[in-house]
Design a protein around this nucleic acid. Structure first.
Lengths: 346, 346
DNA sequence: TTGAAAGCGTTACCAA
DNA sequence: TTGGTAACGCTTTCAA
């Protein structure tokens, strides 16, 4: 089935009465062409509504790298901040970044498939149960399931949890509850338990509540914890979104934050600075995460081309003055560990 | 300069001892191939680390449409919500969406150029003074400068402003200040003045403050308005981000919201529901905006191919079961007007 | 200053 | 079930 014919360079050449090479020269501002000829060609191109075929250009010039970003929802500020940094990091390398907001619905595959044909690699936080049968290199970001993906950017949440709890203890809190998320106790939750034990602080199963990872989940968690009627002067949340939800839940229940209960989150989202009072949080540097992720992609891509012979030159043909190519492709599956800093804003 | 050689289908064919057509059949799960042959080919491909060249595939199969999204920063929740909707709308059409967070720095062109070679059209809120010399179709979204772009999605903010003010009046407010943004009084600001005049409410130049469009701008605006020591029981903000900033500014100054001063925003961002108290706002439907924008892109793309002869068949060759092609390409520059709804959440 | 010819890597069509 | 041939639209030599 022949595709609908589009205007090609040959049509322009015909109309302008020149050869197609001349058209190329005229349209790409190349030297060695008479101004009059150029004008004639440009006019013809405009009249025909000519638009170069990108695929053909890519084929002959080298495609350049394009990576896809997979997120559950850009409405989650964690993902939007990550996307912002990835966009910046991609631009620095001259790469393209295709966005895929897979959403929470059942149409994941439909949203995903347009992506897969366009990217050289995938980066992101693979949603639970997402199709793992993609055949492009995949770099997971902070995925608790380490078996997912060809490489992983791993965040040392234990450091963050300890910093956050240290802060709470230093400000006189002694009864810290935790809002966790996910089916199993998270790494953060385990670190929380360990810290409490080491510090000799009280802990019981009732100190922990497990909710859906969302603002509403945070509200529900606060309500639930208050219902339990336990000694509690602080709450550590799995992340900032939950923490902000918990703040709202506390407020709705008539508790004052931080006077009655302190709330600390994790991530260091901008959001924490927008609410009142401002959220205390253990922050990660998403710029570092983004850069690390693309570095892994680069290594993966180079590695993929390396098999045939000696060390390949470069995968992405960095078009922009990006960072020097550190093709440490010897270890295809690497783990990066950005460190955490507590930002105390309350 | 010859590009570094990559593994092609021919290499696989050679290693597997078949022709390249057979390789294509094997790798694309096409019928009419012996299982044994397929296995041999697949094995050879894997051994070579073969990865199909997307540009070549696109060239022969038809590229499919890819649009670029231009935003100042995805950290601005307005843009991230818009991006989320655009991603969804693009996926529904089988289109790709390349993200470009141009940022506020001076490296805009550097961030933009990797994008321009990859997209068929651009959508977005062109930052002030951004390079308008892009030669791909551009659909502006709610850009106050209507001369920008080949088509525009226009939002009727006057409706929103009136709805918001009506709400304030209905709840007993009489002295409404306005936080505006931009060098000149915005459409929203003019609507605000008009409404006040019609309603017989007090207005003076001191009722308005003009700040940078950011959270900090909102804080500064609140401080400034309070400093002016005018009768004020409500504030209308240019958008939600400013409104939330104003809420924080009020809180920092010891004012209670909404008891002392009510604050209403515009946009209807999720953010408004996260803060305490929740923000009252005049909401737009960004899903509608996103759909409208891509519809305009489609019209522009079809229009571009239409000149030569009769009505073209289709621009994007919709790969997914997207909406029916309403190629109303007769009017290339169209203006869409989503309506607004007040969401009173306080 | 211009034009002819040779690819780029893949898929589609038809014959073997 | 397989292979040969012909596009796809463009840029890049190399000659004229």
């Amino acid at each position: 089935m022949p595709r609908p014919r589009t205007t090609t360079i040959l049509d322009v050449a015909r109309d302008a009465g020149v050869s197609r090479q001349t058209v190329t020269r005229a349209l790409n501002d190349m030297p060695g062409i008479a101004p009059a000829t150029r004008d004639r060609v440009v006019a013809a191109a405009r009249a025909l509504g000519y638009r170069p075929n990108r695929a053909a250009q890519s084929l002959v010039k080298g495609a350049g790298t394009t990576v896809g970003l997979l997120v559950e929802s850009l409405r989650n500020p964690y993902y939007s901040e990550l996307a912002s940094e990835l966009s910046r990091a991609a631009a620095a390398r001259g790469w393209g970044l295709i966005l895929c907001d897979v959403g929470y619905g059942s149409d994941r595959d439909a949203r995903l498939s347009p992506l897969l044909r366009r990217v050289d690699a995938l980066v992101g936080c693979l949603p639970a149960g997402a199709t793992a049968d993609v055949d492009v290199p995949f770099v997971a970001i902070d995925n608790p399931d380490e078996t997912v993906g060809d490489a992983t950017v791993w965040i040392d949440h234990e450091v963050g949890v300890r910093a956050a709890l240290q802060h709470l203890v230093a400000t006189g809190r002694r009864h810290v509850a935790m809002i966790d998320s996910g089916p199993e106790p998270s790494t953060r939750c385990l670190a929380y338990r360990a810290f409490l034990a080491e510090a000799g602080l009280a802990w019981s199963e009732r100190s922990e509540v497990r909710v859906e990872e969302s603002h509403d989940g945070g509200i529900a968690a606060a309500v639930e914890l208050l219902d339990r009627d336990l000694a509690m002067d602080a709450v550590l949340a799995f992340n900032d979104v939950l923490a902000v939800g918990a703040m709202k839940g506390m407020a709705q229940a008539g508790r004052r934050v931080p006077d009655d209960v302190a709330v600390v989150g994790m991530d260091g989202l901008d959001l924490g600075g927008l609410v009142t009072p401002e959220l205390t949080t253990a922050a990660t540097d998403r710029g570092v995460i983004a850069t690390a992720a693309l570095e892994l992609v680069d290594a993966l891509l180079v590695g993929g081309e390396e098999r045939p012979g000696g060390p390949a030159e470069s995968a992405g043909r960095s078009e922009a003055p990006g960072p020097p190519e550190t093709s440490a492709a010897a270890r295809p599956r690497r783990t990066i560990v950005p460190h955490l800093v507590v930002r105390a804003s309350a």
